[in-house]
């Protein structure tokens, strides 16, 4: 842990943390609404998870247990660096076990196991505005949210279906929160989108570069945008299993054997896969 004489606990000064917490409270009070906040400078480049880190640093306490994952992996460069940084400035315990963690900071994935009510999932968000793909002007998207004018977003989905026969959005699939705000669930795959609905845990979303925070409190209704006659579909892994732990019905990464060229699959959530193997699960 770094010298507490020169750095405050959790790096940010107390006033900064207080301001971020106030924004978080507002975000929890209005699920799916993007709350602006004064994004601070950090020893990490913008776009590398600064929004998520600021939320984590603002809510973390000495008793917390932290897990950081990047695209499901505990060991990617981004995840390891964030873990090192938070650990250095707080001294909290670090884990790879999703069940043991009280705060999980993540990018691109939600852990496989259902999260519990005392857990907080912090998601890093590159582009918080879901309407950006249909409207480039911030002032206009704000007005669209205020008036609930989401026709252009629906029209984009309609066009995809008409021209391609299916909706082409794979990650960042827009969701409607409590039948009010359309929200960007961060670049999680479609597979993870249903996990946001009626969840026991608290989801916090931070975009450092765009200076926005939003949240999904526990047991909030979060529904992907879908037409009445075209149900929302997630990625399908039927008939595929992890080559390390044999897991089926989980989100799998597709890999290619460089020598044989054969395709094989392994769990995207590495912590989940390692725990299964510890329990003796084999392919």
């Amino acid at each position: 842990m770094i010298d507490q004489k020169h750095y405050n606990f959790a790096f940010l000064d107390e006033n900064s943390k207080r301001e971020i917490r106030r924004s978080l409270l507002k975000a929890v009070a209005i699920p799916g609404y993007q709350v602006p906040f004064g994004s601070r400078e950090l020893p990490i480049g913008r776009g590398w998870g600064t929004g998520g880190i600021q939320i984590t640093l603002s809510v973390i306490g000495k008793e917390d247990v932290l897990k950081v994952i990047d695209q499901g992996s505990d060991d990617s460069v981004n995840a390891v660096n964030i873990k090192k940084f938070v650990s250095a400035c707080t001294g909290v315990e670090i884990t790879t076990d999703s069940e043991a963690a009280s705060i999980i900071q993540t990018r691109h994935r939600i852990p496989e196991i259902p999260l519990k009510k005392e857990q907080i999932l912090v998601l890093q968000v590159p582009t918080p505005e879901p309407l950006r793909i249909v409207e480039p002007r911030e002032a206009v998207t704000k007005k669209m949210h205020a008036e609930g004018e989401y026709s252009p977003m629906w029209l984009t989905l309609y066009e995809d279906l008409l021209r391609c026969g299916k909706i082409g959005i794979s990650a960042e699939y827009p969701v409607l929160v409590e039948n009010r705000y359309i929200m960007n669930p961060s670049p999680i795959p479609r597979y993870d989108t249903p996990k946001l609905n009626d969840s026991d845990c608290l989801y916090l979303f931070g975009a450092g570069r765009e200076k926005k925070i939003y949240a999904i409190p526990p047991h909030t209704r979060v529904m992907p945008l879908e037409f009445d006659d075209i149900p929302f579909e997630t990625e399908n892994f039927t008939g595929k299993r992890c080559h390390l732990c044999g897991a089926e019905g989980v989100y799998l990464d597709e890999l290619t054997d460089e020598e044989t060229g054969a395709k094989y699959y392994e769990c995207s959530d590495t912590g989940y896969c390692a725990k299964r193997r510890e329990q003796g699960c084999r392919p």
Binding site: S151, P152, W154, L155, Y158, E159, L162, R163, F227, D229
Partner: peptide, 21 residues
């Protein structure tokens, strides 16, 4: 956008959510 999409925009704005109809 497609010609059909342009018409659908008006239907969507009026609350239409059934792709087929």
């Amino acid at each position: 956008y497609s010609a059909a999409g342009n018409i659908a925009e008006k239907l969507i704005a009026a609350g239409g959510r059934n792709f087929g109809s």
